[in-house]
């Protein structure tokens, strides 16, 4: 048998190597966004020095594109969608887990369809619907679509968490005359970790989506940060400083959110997949 420290070393070598492969492009983009054009091309691998430091890219970015606005749009859409996904999902998940009624199985299956079927495939119908309701180029349209997209998994995961709660607590409340709504409010804090994980896993595809902003809300007023970055990158293809600055600026909020929510996210990712 090989000595244990040797196989440990091999594991570290592989993991470290892969981590470097992951970090290299991100660090490369980030560090070069603070350099002048010459230095970007002459020595891309070197971090910025006082001589090569430049914020020209960021200046162009703020002069030409309304990034604070895009950021705010992304934030609005994501927060509103997550609130609806978690809250409506909790209500529905609670009902499906708590009550026996005739349509229960049917509704559970009906709602679970959306876990497997991508909502993008209904885009033709969705765009016609939004156009008929004069909701094209509104953030509301995005919020409603993302809510519909996130609800199936949210309901599925939350109903399983509600089902695991012991019944005594709820029954005691009912004996005391609590309404069903009160019972719901009382058990909601008990599944708080699950609400967090659902929010965390639902967040990434919403924040990062290009498809629906591009199709439903492409106006400059309603652009999300991903679409804003995409358009800007296409226009400023040859201004490397601006392009690198745009990439870095668009990455930062996502990375910060990730560092804050990584625990919920990782738990959610694994909870959602457990059969």
């Amino acid at each position: 048998m090989r000595p244990r420290w040797l196989s440990g070393l091999a594991a570290h070598a592989v993991l470290l190597g892969y981590s470097l492969l992951v970090l290299f492009p991100i660090v490369l983009v980030f560090q070069n966004s603070f350099k002048d054009q010459m230095a970007i091309f002459a020595e891309p691998l070197r971090p910025p020095t006082p001589e090569t430091f430049s914020l020209e890219g960021y200046r162009t970015l703020f002069e030409v594109a309304n990034f604070p606005r895009y950021f705010l749009n992304s934030l609005t859409v994501t927060v509103a969608s997550l609130f609806l996904i978690v809250f409506l999902g909790a209500m529905a998940g609670f009902a499906l887990a708590e009550y026996r009624f005739r349509l229960n199985t049917f509704l559970s299956l009906y709602l679970a369809l959306g876990i497997m079927v991508p909502i993008r495939l209904g885009t033709v119908g969705l765009l016609r619907l939004m156009a008929a309701w004069h909701m094209v180029n509104t953030l509301t349209a995005l919020v409603l679509v993302y809510t519909a997209m996130g609800l199936p998994l949210s309901i599925f995961v939350l109903s399983r968490f509600f089902a695991q709660l012991p019944p005594d607590f709820k029954d005691a409340a009912r004996v005391d005359g609590a309404s069903e709504y009160r019972v719901f409010w009382m058990v909601l804090p008990l599944v708080r970790p699950a609400l967090g994980t659902v929010a965390a896993i639902s967040m990434i595809p919403i924040w990062n989506d290009l498809w629906f902003p591009l199709i439903l809300a492409p106006s400059d007023r309603t652009k999300t940060i991903v679409l804003g970055a995409q358009v800007f990158l296409g226009q400023f293809l040859n201004d490397w400083q601006a392009v690198l600055a745009a990439l870095s600026l668009a990455m930062i909020p996502a990375v910060l959110l990730y560092l804050v929510f990584s625990k919920q996210l990782i738990r959610g990712l694994t909870a959602g997949a457990v059969k």
């Binding site: 959306g114 495939l121 209904g122 885009t123 033709v124 119908g125 016609r128 619907l129």
Partner: peptide, 9 residues
């Protein structure tokens, strides 16, 4: 926003 558009499409 999910089932109807899919069916409509």
């Amino acid at each position: 926003f999910m089932i109807y558009p899919m069916v409509a499409s």
